[in-house]
Design a protein around this nucleic acid. Structure first.
Lengths: 200, 200
DNA sequence: TCAACCATTGTGGGAACCCACAGTTTTGAT
DNA sequence: ATCAAAACTGTGGGTTCCCACAATGGTTGA
């Protein structure tokens, strides 16, 4: 279970509390922020979070905050909440990848459903990230030469060919190959190809 | 070059003509439709198209048309055009995957840019489809047994293991393996894994 | 300076892979 | 009934892979 917190960023205390109440009653951890600036200064890239963002706040607006988050590499789901609907704003943030754009007063069920969707998406993203991190960890443990050999293995080349290209003997390639399999935790070239699929 | 046509679906003839004029002047092929029903009856799944859809039309509305298209498997980019902005509608269609939601009167440059983006996306989609079709063609040419062997190869299993699992001799597996490589146009198991990456 | 790691190579043998040549059996369609 | 494709098997020989055992030389940080 990833401890994903839902961050509620809204300058209206009544709204924050109401949403927190709703989510807590459904077993969802929350954290409240009265403005975008405070939340932004707290936010860091490897947080697990879903974000509820009020569109119009004193100080930085929701869309501005969203843009900054994306620029800083935030991939967490963001749900906008707004009092006065504004089509261009909704279009803009949704096209930039916001998960939803809800108009107040919003239906409790709709908000809850959307937040749950966000939590699922975030959990999925975290899984991907962890898999990626594990892979990177393995890749980082390879020596330069091993990496070189691995790439050629992934081209489907035989040891003999690799040896020719690297101007070394087949025996040496075999040694590197074995190290690569060992370090990457696979036992065949096919597994290696699958594990690194979609990679560089 | 894929012969992608931009379909303009709008009940206002003046709007249709204006957009057609704009796009034609920029070398983009168009086809005009006065209502969603006519376009829908023309549309078929393997069309290459980008779609400009008026939100409010006599008869079927844009969003209704869009929903039907998606239900029928249409993956082409859809751009909405609308006179009177309606936040829930914009949110709904964008969340369903519409490319954009433009309010009239729209800026020529914006429309043109969006259409070009749509054409690019569609071209990319067509490429993917064609690659997929080629792959499916290869897969379809495999006999049931060959397919079975291929799956086990993709699990990284050795001929010997495959033979045991299928209750046949290694020799037979070798034959099937060779056929698979031949038919799939690859020369190693790694290439096979890469070609079918992200597949079933 | 010494341990640790990297890159390299050799030998030798067992296992796996690839393939040409040759053949049987089953199955489905005309 | 007949023909074609699919599935299956064998033999033999060459190639490639894998690995234990053994070793050399270079770099680097403690």
């Amino acid at each position: 279970m990833s401890a994903t917190t839902v961050h509620i960023v809204d300058d209206d205390e009544a709204v924050r509390d109401a949403i927190q109440f709703l989510l807590r009653n459904n077993g969802i951890a929350t954290r409240l922020w009265p403005n975008a600036e405070d939340f932004l200064s707290y936010w860091h890239p490897d947080m697990h979070s879903s974000i509820l963002l009020d569109a119009r706040m004193t100080g930085m607006t929701g869309p501005e905050c969203f843009t900054l988050l994306r620029e800083r590499g935030c991939q967490s789901p963001v749900i906008f909440l707004t009092g006065h609907g504004d089509v261009p704003m909704a279009v803009e943030v949704l096209r930039q990848g916001a998960m939803h754009f809800l108009e107040k007063p919003f239906d409790r069920e709709t908000l809850l459903r959307t937040v749950r969707e966000a939590l699922e998406q975030e959990a999925h993203r975290i899984e991907q990230l962890q898999a990626q991190a594990l892979l990177n960890h393995c890749l980082a443990s390879l020596s330069p030469r091993e990496l070189e050999v691995m790439e050629k293995i992934l081209d489907g080349k035989q040891n003999k060919v690799i040896a020719d290209e690297l101007l070394i003997t087949v025996r040496t390639v075999e040694v590197h190959r074995a190290s690569v399999f060992e370090k990457m935790g696979v036992r065949s070239a096919v597994e290696l190809a699958r594990r690194t699929a979609g990679q560089k």
